[in-house]
Amino acid sequence: MSAFAGGDAAIDRKRSSAAAGHVGLALIALVLLGQLAGCGRAQLQPAGPISDAERKILLDSVVIMLAIVIPTIFATLGVAWWYRASNPRARRLPDFVYSGRVELIVWSIPTLVIIFLGGIAWISSHDLDPAQPLPSKAAPLDIQVVSLDWKWLFIYPRLGIASVNRLEVPAGVPLHLMVTSASVWNAFWVPQLGSMLYCMNGMSGTLYLEADRPGVYRGESAMISGDGFADMHFDTDAVTQEQFNAWVTSTRNAGPVLDDPAYRGLLRQSVPPHPYTYRSVRQGLFADIVMQRLPPGEGPRGAAPNVHPVGLK
């Protein structure tokens, strides 16, 4: 019937549901925007200069884009609604298919926004390069991070101690993290401190972070690494310098020694039930891991598929 009839009859039927529809769309958009600007805990509650700067960039970018996205959404809904077929007051312009002025505007608005955001991206990429040392009066604390199946090993090379699944750091002191993996990829990430970085076998990545106030910050792996992946989280204890010194002293006085046999034990797939520390670490262990002079993680070692790894919590 409607090949030449313009489908007028069909329009009437659709009128009623469309009204409700647009209110609904607008509400959904609002709810989402509320959520985005809302109260995230980790990245939006920074505890260090890096995450603080990253939060600022994140929010700035969102606000800049919302300035164009919100009008676009409302314009879409408004135009669609005003030009509904059943609106007798709408002025129809069936021949309005090209306008140089409109074209100029629709190309230039996104271009200008992207030039602006591109500038932000360029500058911030350089300011917040993970390998960039932090300006600070305090000398940075070296920490070597090794991801294993499925635990984190933190070596303090200058202090000669190591810790598994707990990262103890002094607040207010820049942390110089050297990140590698003993087996598969992982990503080292403490959201409240800032940038994540991949841990890769045979390579060492550099990451500078700092906690500017004491607290316990959740750290985790952000890259699937096998069956124990969900347990690869750790607490970052940021404490005062005095507390940190006390922790170093107590660590040096107790616990096992991290030598090659102990390291080979770590290479086995397991999830340690509790964090623990090593009172001393063999010199050059991290370099040997990075240079692949030590064997990589063992993997499931001939276990049949579908066999669950031992030690899962």
């Binding site: 021949d95 309005f96 298919v97 090209y98 306008s99 002025r101 409109v102």
Partner: peptide, 15 residues
């Protein structure tokens, strides 16, 4: 705005 618009007639060349 309609001044800037171009008619799309059959076989015309609006672009």
């Amino acid at each position: 705005m309609s001044a800037a618009s171009t008619a799309l007639r059959a076989g015309s060349d609006p672009y």
